[in-house]
Design a protein around this nucleic acid. Structure first.
Lengths: 134, 134
DNA sequence: CTTGACCTTAAAGTGCACTTCAGGGTGTAG
DNA sequence: CTACACCCTGAAGTGCACTTTAAGGTCAAG
């Protein structure tokens, strides 16, 4: 059994994040010892790590709550989990597409811009003000 | 001269966004007509479009304030603008790298996951709880 | 016996870019 | 005359995931 500081370190999150997850219902309220300190089991720490890992691959805390209830649901199948992962994969791909478009526009612009010359003749500013698209 | 509704439509933003930009100092407080309605010049609308376009390629409103002051600065050069664009390009590339890593991990996991089988044996959940990395 | 690192709580603040709300005035078409 | 779309203000709310603040209690080392 670890106190909150060590459990947080093990889970790779901050102490405040631990209390936040508890408040949000992502981790169960842990038992307390005599002085009122929270005490975490290895299982609880594993759950924190689960949350952290899931976040690292793009799941929001809301998504993670859903994943955790799936984990607790004996009627749920591996395919349900895979569906969530695929959906997230799609969302991330969408973001990458948007960012890549931005990236390409910026690259075009920086290539078109001479370092010299007044801003009044800057092709980037021109592009930002024009009526048409791009 | 357009009232706020038309100016917003021309600029591609909401009326509320227009007032917000004004409050944030990104667009000058416009003249008002007799009834107190804001009246926007073609120049003002161009500035709104500038803000919108810059946002669309990833600049924050803070960045845009910086760009706009560059535009007003006779001592600034095209190279200064290009530097801002390059910096933003780098930031976007960083985000793409992070998202691509997430994407790849999720793709690996969804490939490893059989649709059948209980969640207790789900390789995705295994990966989320394990001690080691990936 | 004090210093310092730890723990407790509830509530408020952060960043970003708005959006919504409450409560009102204006202008025109039917 | 009344409906309706438009305009005004200031303040509060949104989403996300915390972080910070204020005001304490606990515990081991020196």
């Amino acid at each position: 059994m670890l106190n909150i500081g060590k459990a947080a370190r093990e889970g790779g999150v901050s102490v405040e994040a631990m209390r936040y997850y508890e408040q949000q219902g992502l981790i169960a309220a842990p038992d307390r010892d005599a002085n009122g300190y929270r005490k975490y089991s290895a299982d609880a720490v594993r759950r924190v790590r689960f949350i952290k890992r899931a976040q690292d691959v793009g799941f929001t805390l809301r998504d993670i709550g859903d994943l955790l209830s799936l984990q607790a649901d004996s009627g749920a199948s591996c395919g349900d989990v895979r569906d969530r992962a695929r959906t997230k994969l799609g969302e991330i791909d969408d973001k990458i597409v948007v960012l890549t478009r931005m990236r390409d526009v910026l690259a075009t612009w920086t290539d078109a811009c001479p370092s010299e010359g007044p801003v009044s003749e800057c092709p980037i500013f021109d592009a930002l003000e024009r009526d048409d698209e791009t």
